[in-house]
Structure formats: C-alpha cells, structure tokens
Write a protein that binds this DNA or RNA. Structure first.
Lengths: 339, 339
DNA sequence: CTTGACATCCGAAACGTTTTGGATTATAAT
DNA sequence: ATTATAATCCAAAACGTTTCGGATGTCAAG
C-alpha cells in the first residue's frame, strides 16, 4: 500500500541500504545516485514508517500522559492549558504525545500505565496531581522508567518533580485576608490524598497561627475541585451560626463556585465576604468580581515538566531534579476588608 | 532489556512460534506446554511490544487528534470535555489517542498531519472546528485516510461528519429574545472561516427576518472565541449610540466575557440586557447570573465521533455517515424581557 | 605493475511480533 | 502392518527500517 524504501530501491535500481543512507544524509553515496533517489522518493511520495523506525531504533519519541478525570462530565480549564504547554514543548523537540483519560486510582488507570510503559509505547511518562504514596510513582520507579511528576509525593527524594510551593501560596492568601482584618477565615480544601492539598492546608494553618487565630475544624471543608463542590461547600460554610467573613479556596474552579453561593445568599463578594482562589486560570481575571488568587504559571509548568522529561529521556544532564516554583498572590476585587 | 518472546522460548525450550501461539490462545499447542509458557511469561514479566505488533499487523490501534489552539495561553473548557469523551470511548475499544496541539492553518498543523497520516502513526484522524474549504479535509480525502469531522465543510457529501445544527440553535436563541420583546439584538460571531460560524450567523439572520427585524451590520461583531474577545466585543456594542438590549453570542466563553462587560457598565444582565451563549459548558450554569445558552452535548459528541471513526477503521458498517444533532435552548436567568 | 586509499555500493542481521505452510510424532482405523 | 487422522510443534518469511562489516571498482602514488 504505502511506499517503502524497497519501492524506491526497485525504482532506482539500487539496494535498500543505499536508499536508506541517501535519505539519511550519509556521505557514502554518490551525488548522482542520491539525486536519483531523492527524485524517486519525491515522485512516489515516500514517507518513512514511524512504526518501523521505532522498532529498529528502540525508542518511540513519544511521551505518555494520563489525565486524571473525575466523572464523565469533565471540564477543567486547568488541564487544557497544561496540555497546551506540554504539547507545544513536545512538538518543539519532535516528540509526540500519547494521552489517556482515566479516573484516578482506578484499575483502568493502572492498566493504562502498564500498557504505555510495559508495552514500550512511550519513552517517558508525565504524572500530574500526585497523591500521597502514589502507586503510579512506585510503578514507574520500580521499573526505572523515565518520568517527571508535577507535584511532590511521599518519599521521592530520588525522583524528579516540579512543584509549586502551595504552602507558601496559601500562606500568602490567608495572610492577606488577615491583614484585611478578617478573623474568621474558612478554607475549602482539595481531597487530602492529594499531596498539594496537604501543603496548601498547612499553609492555611500556619498563616492562621501566625496571625494569632486558632484553627477551627468547622471552617474547613473538602471538595473535589469542581465548581459545583465549591458552591456546595461555600453554602454550608455561609449557613453556619457564625459564618466566616472570608473563604480561602484550594483552586479557582471551586472559588468560582463559592462566589456563586455567596451571590445567591445576597452577599456581595469583596465587600460582605472575601474569597480567594488558587491557579489563576484565565477565567479568574474575568470573574465577577475578578478573583483574588494565587497564580501558578500553568502553561509554563506544562512546558517545563515536558522539557525535563525529554532531557531525562535523551540523557542530557538536568540542572535540577527538584524544582519548586514560587506562586504569586494576585490581588483583585474578590477580597476586600472585613466589615 | 525488556523480556521478549525469544526469552520465554529459550527459557521453556520451545520455539518462538509456539510461545506466540500459546499466548495468543491458539489450540495447536499442548496444554502442558501452554502452562509452562504461561508460567514463564508470568515469571519473567513478559509484556508484548506494542511497536513490534503494530509493524507486523500493519495497524496501530491509535487515533490522532490535533487540537486547534489559539495562542500560547490556551484554556478552553470545551476541549477538555470533548477530549474526555473521545478518550473514554477510545479506551473502551482499546484504542490509544495521539494528541497534538497546533494553531489552526499553520505550517506546523500541516506538518502534524503529514507525520501522523503519512508516517502511519495512527489509523484514523478526528478533525474538529472545520473550516470552509478545509485543507485538512482535502488532505485526508486525497489520501483516502479514515477520518471523522466534527462540523461540516464545503463539499463534503462523501465524507463522514457529525455536526450540531447551529442554524437552528441560534435561531432558537434569537427567537427567544424576540419573544421577550427585544427589537435590537446584537450578535457576537465566531470567525467566519469556521463553518459553524456561518451556520449560526445565518440562524441569527433568519430569526431576525422572521421576527420582522432587519439585519444591521453594526450589531454584528467577530471574536476568536475567547472570554477576552467576548468582553471587548460587548463593550463596543454597548457603547453604541443605540446600544442593543440583547446580545446573542456564538459560544459560552465569549458570552461570559460579554456578561462581564455588561456588569462593568453597571448593567444587570438579565434585566438591563439579555445575553445568550452556545455550548453549555459546565461553567455556564454556574455563571452569575446563570447563562441562557444553546446546549450541545460536548462529551457525547466526543464519544460519538470517536465511535464513528473506530467503526470506519474496523470496517463495521456505519448506519449514518452524516449526523446532525439538534441542540436545545436552555433558559436561565441571563435572558430577561426587554425593558 | 603493484599497492593503498578512497569512493561507492550492498548483503545480512537486527528490532519483536504474527502467520504460513509444513514437519514430526502419536493415535486410531482398516 | 499399513494408512489416515489428529495433535504438536517449528522454520522461515514478513512488516519497514537502520547499521555493521565488508565488497567492488577507480585512481594516484610508489
């Protein structure tokens, strides 16, 4: 069906080896035959079989990425931006990207890893939303398979990661709320099996403590990072006998949900209640009112972890196996002084 | 490095053929040797090389998907949901998904298609956001390569697509606005090289005409489907001498931007100005106020086009090569009666 | 005229599978 | 005892590349 080296060889009257070497730019083929070969390749419309090459070279020039999706209706602007960063960086290095969508900690997720890694479908894996004691990381480490994680894990001092200092991020946000005079500050957390959730929660607690406020379990709720969960949690928080005057939230999507809940209760966000997010997805700047949030450079993160992985795969030395980025607090109108 | 059939063969003392057939479940291998082989495979940790299989079987069980991204900071909830639909359906059929991110109509996009198709990296392609006279479709048709498009194109009566009736969608939305008493209805369109933009625009025009309103160029602006563009367009529309009392928008993200512009001008959306979107991304229901929009089942669309493509690849008969889904108008609070 | 160097080419093996078309042996039927 | 049949097995080719280690021919230097 498709045109192969053999076809060109037959057409020109030369061996397959010579065709391969002519096309490969080796200098042990005469200029005139090279020309003939190039012309024939052009005429016949030759394009090398990537699969055959992969088999021969024993590498795929492909990186694998399993996106953790919660539920069927999955729509997270965070991931589309991360994916763009990863994809563009991969393309820059002529790497392809193999993507799967699986719900976290499911048998399907494990199966996907087996297939990509053990089936040698990819040269390296990108792991995101690391969990404490993450089975994906143990799997990869056990097989000595190249990977880079976005997010730290339990005992991972010998595996490469890039992470954002969520502790400091949330510390800044809560500190900011305290400076605004808030004394009753709630927190909507991410599920605590995610490592970043622990860091951010601790940042919240440390800021409270330093501000002389005491940690109150009643003021901490957990949501699965969706707008809907943020909405529900905020409703419950604002229905308390002594409701909080400020709510820090573990990500922007839930913060948008929290804002909606506040609106629904007739509160003006930024005046009656302060709300902060985390991520700075594009929508955050465009919320109503614009959302005060902790910015992490999502696109850049995608680019960087992809770059790190490719360096590991190609054997280039990595200047740093552990990167912690500092997030920055972005002040907007959703957080105002306490009444 | 990795364990191969040959390793098992050597270990058990049998030929590679027999190992392959034992593992493949053929019945021409004795039960006792099969057991020995299975045990050895287990012990040695055998997993077949996907690449070698692909080369031999001349298919990849992979489908390709090039996501059109505008600019580096790309973050579209639409695509993450579509991707989930595609990815899950692919997984259900044991297909992998190869994803690229390229800006539309760029040389890089063309290169990606050459690589995936001519390099036989994938068995079929999914094309989204079809354009009038789409070079991607001509490319695929010329090569007789399996593909399914989300969205119609110019002369594509012989190529499979799934589309949503954008004409009727926008017709419903504008009709709804007219019924609410609006007489000056603006429209924020998508770029007109996208086929769906044409359909929706025509739906807008036809609804106007049927309602006895005349089409006014001044009231139609074009945006690149981002929140920011919707924001800008709405600002310009609302700054007109005779501003519209209602704005229909070609997608939800721009509609959210339009809502923000209206708020900024001190208008209450749903009372002072009516706004409708298109898509019904999850965020639409959670906007403030909730967005009246035309719902297209994004996840389901991803699932369906993926399913169609796999049927084409595997040679199963397709009941219908052209599917038009009817979108439904979802009434929420962003659209109220004219003052 | 021989030798060595260089330019140009190619056969064969390898990558890890699957598949084709027998070969060999044991078993049952005549 | 012979023959047909079934049960097991396997060598080799194929998929489309790349690469190793020569082979061949030409030409200039000795």
């Amino acid at each position: 069906m498709a045109v192969t080296l053999k076809d060109i060889a037959r057409h020109v009257g030369v061996s397959v080896t010579t065709v391969s070497r002519a096309l490969g730019g080796y200098d042990d083929v005469a200029e005139t035959t090279r020309q003939k070969i190039l012309r024939a390749a052009e005429e016949l419309g030759y394009y090398p079989s990537v699969t055959a090459r992969q088999l021969q070279k024993q590498r795929t020039d492909t990186i694998g990425f399993v996106i953790p999706t919660f539920g069927p209706r999955f729509s997270d602007p965070f991931f589309s931006e991360l994916l763009a960063g990863i994809g563009n960086e991969a393309a820059r290095h002529n790497f392809d990207l193999l993507v799967c969508t699986r719900s976290p900690d499911s048998p399907e997720e494990e199966e996907a890893y087996r297939r990509l890694v053990d089936g040698r479908r990819v040269d390296g894996m990108l792991v995101v939303r690391t969990r404490v004691d993450d089975p994906r990381l143990s799997f990869l480490k056990q097989r000595h398979f190249p990977f880079v994680a976005f997010g730290r894990s339990h005992a991972d001092e010998n595996s490469p990661y890039l992470d954002v200092d969520g502790h400091h991020g949330l510390y800044q946000a809560v500190r900011h709320l305290i400076d605004l005079g808030h004394r009753r500050i709630a927190y909507i957390s991410a599920p605590l099996n995610l490592t970043f959730a622990l860091h951010r929660l601790q940042g919240y607690r440390d800021a409270l403590q330093e501000g002389g406020l005491k940690y109150d379990e009643e003021l901490v709720h957990v949501g699965y990072l969706t707008e809907e969960d943020g909405y529900q949690a905020a409703h419950r928080l604002l229905a308390l006998d002594r409701p909080p005057t400020a709510i820090a939230v573990a990500n922007d999507l839930m913060a948008l949900g929290a804002m909606r809940a506040a609106h629904e209760r007739g509160l003006t966000v930024g005046r009656d209640v302060a709300i902060t997010g985390f991520d700075d997805i594009p929508l955050a700047a465009h919320a109503h009112p614009p959302l005060t949030t902790v910015r992490q450079p999502i696109y850049e993160i995608g680019r960087r972890i992809c770059q790190m992985l490719i360096q590991i795969i190609t054997g280039e030395p990595l200047d740093n196996y552990h990167l912690i980025l500092e997030p920055t607090l972005i002040l907007r109108q959703s957080s105002g002084p306490a009444q």
